[in-house]
Design a protein around this nucleic acid. Structure first.
Length: 476
RNA sequence: CGGGGUGUAGCGCAGUUGGUAGCGCACCGCGUUUGGGACGCGGGGGUCGGCGGUUCAAGUCCGCCCACCCCGACCA
């Protein structure tokens, strides 16, 4: 393998693949389109899970587990849902050597089977709301796959709730969109734009879909989390009814919302640089790595006890000591930079003598990011630096994003800007305009930001009156 | 499913008119090294993607198949 990564600016997709392989986040599985998530990648996902799970619990949700297999007939009960998903279903037709009476679908998402169970569990308004989440794997038979971004099987969480009123369901949908936004900004340092999906980009079977859209390092957009108001579509398809206070049968209002291992791809592409990964400190599996430095046995005997002492003082911080003897310190510096560890702590004979350590920030390459600080009070210094790195990463990503969002005033300019950025412009709301824009430019409607106070204008494509402005971009 | 590309050691590749399968990295052993990707010496590792054909002889020529990667239409 070459020592250097391909340059991010020259070949973004090759850079992306190699970062994943070299940083040992994931590997290709023997089945096309499937991946193995390796321990380092899974540790990152576990940190994402932990912080999201805490947010779900804090907003009143409980975890449960529903089956992997769904009767084919369930999928067929909601018209838009089956239309949307049938091309990408994996179907089991044989079990235990016998042809099955009814084929079983490997879940592409669980609205149907959970809807079925909710119909069974919900009797009266006293049973509502039901607020359940599950952490699961799902399968969608995609044509073209990319590690983390689109694989046949992926890991995610899917929240499914049922409510007595439309208003409650709308509030839930928006609440979880806010949770995702808060997570993206405050944990992953990714400044996402929340908004509503257009009709054509909506989830199959939803009344309204909402999304958080993030800008990647090549300016393409990535849908990083979604929240759907399902209206009464699934309630009617699965007969999810409750008896209200007046002894009347009513259909429930349901929602669903999900965030997947795709988000790992978002972290890689939003923050990475030519040296490799740059992990946001609050999610990084290793927050600080200690590299001991010594030339001989005498120095080794001097340095290692200080390394142990420093490590034991950094309580509450995810620290790793790189005690490999078969590679040089210089190799380790590059290795941990590739793996995106936010802070490197070097401890050598000079530090032992002076009672100091060398700190290097991953987000600031070269000498500029290196500082020498006393061992006393190191924990506070590391904590401060982790926060500073988070803020700097968020700011850098925000500045990059804002520098690549344009507000074109005519279609020619629109076509220009979406080649290397996002367009924020008026849209009449008609799917035909959207489709033609996509055909001409490959840009799709990413989201319609909420709560617009925009004065009416004219559609960027057809010139007809338009009430709203939308983000358009080429997307993953 | 269309277009392009690649299959030879774990990874990256070379292999001439068909004639005993090689290089770099990685791996193992020993020694010297170690504050920005160390070096020397010695070693282990292959049904050349699969099946069939041509031939005295196939990694190499011919046919079929398979897999993976990249680019398009669908998608979190």
């Amino acid at each position: 393998m070459d020592e250097k990564l391909p340059l991010r600016s020259e070949n973004f997709s090759e850079w992306y693949n190699q970062v994943i392989m070299r940083a040992e986040l994931a590997d290709y599985a023997p089945v096309r389109g499937c991946m193995v998530v390796r321990p380092y990648g899974w540790a990152l996902w576990e940190n994402i899970q932990a912080t999201l799970d805490a947010r779900f619990k804090a907003t009143g949700h409980e975890n449960a587990a529903f089956p992997l297999f769904i009767p084919m007939s369930f999928l067929e009960k909601e018209k838009d849902h089956v239309e949307g998903f049938s091309p990408e279903l994996a179907v089991v037709t044989i079990g235990g050597g016998e042809k099955l009476e009814e084929p079983l679908v490997v879940r592409p998402t669980s609205e149907t089977i959970i809807g079925h169970m909710y119909a069974k569990w919900i009797k009266s308004y006293r049973d509502l709301p039901i607020l359940i989440n599950q952490w699961a794997n799902v399968v969608r038979w995609e044509m073209r796959t990319r590690l983390f971004l689109r694989t046949l099987e992926f890991y995610w969480q899917e929240g499914h709730t049922a409510h007595a009123t439309e208003q409650e369901a709308i509030e839930e949908t928006r609440r979880m969109l806010d949770v995702y936004t808060d997570f993206a900004v405050n944990e992953a340092a990714i400044p996402v734009i929340p908004g509503r999906k257009s009709e054509s980009e909506k989830f199959a079977g939803a009344a309204e879909s909402y999304t958080i859209e993030a800008m990647m390092g090549d300016t393409r957009a990535l849908q990083s989390g979604t929240s759907h108001n399902l209206g009464q579509n699934f309630a009617k398809a699965f007969d999810i009814q409750y008896l209200d206070e007046n002894n009347q049968q009513q259909f429930c209002w349901t929602t669903s919302w999900g965030l997947s291992t795709r988000f790992v791809g978002a972290i890689i592409m939003a923050h990475g640089d030519d040296q490799g990964l740059v992990l946001p400190p609050r999610l990084a599996p290793i927050q600080a790595v200690i590299v001991p430095i010594f030339k001989n046995e005498d120095e080794r005997a001097l340095v290692l006890p200080v390394v142990d002492k420093v490590k034991s003082e950094l309580t509450g911080i995810r620290v790793k000591v790189d005690d490999r003897t078969e590679v040089t310190p210089g190799f380790k510096f590059n290795d941990w930079e590739l793996r995106g560890v936010p802070i490197r702590i070097e401890i050598g004979p000079k530090d032992v003598e002076k009672g100091s350590v060398a700190l290097a920030r991953r987000d600031t390459p070269g000498r500029e990011g290196k500082s020498f600080i006393p061992q006393a009070g190191l924990k506070a210094a590391v904590e401060t630096m982790l926060t500073a790195i988070h803020m700097a990463m968020l700011e850098k990503a925000r500045a990059f994003r804002d520098a690549h969002i344009f507000e074109p005033t005519d279609y020619e300019e629109f076509k220009q800007v979406v080649q290397n950025g996002w367009a924020f412009s008026y849209w009449c709301g008609r799917s035909e305009c959207e489709a033609q824009i996509k055909e001409n430019t490959k840009a799709t409607t990413r989201c319609i930001p909420l709560d617009q106070n925009t004065a009416p204008g004219k559609c960027i494509h057809c010139g007809e009156p338009a009430r709203e402005k939308v983000y358009s971009a080429r997307a993953y």
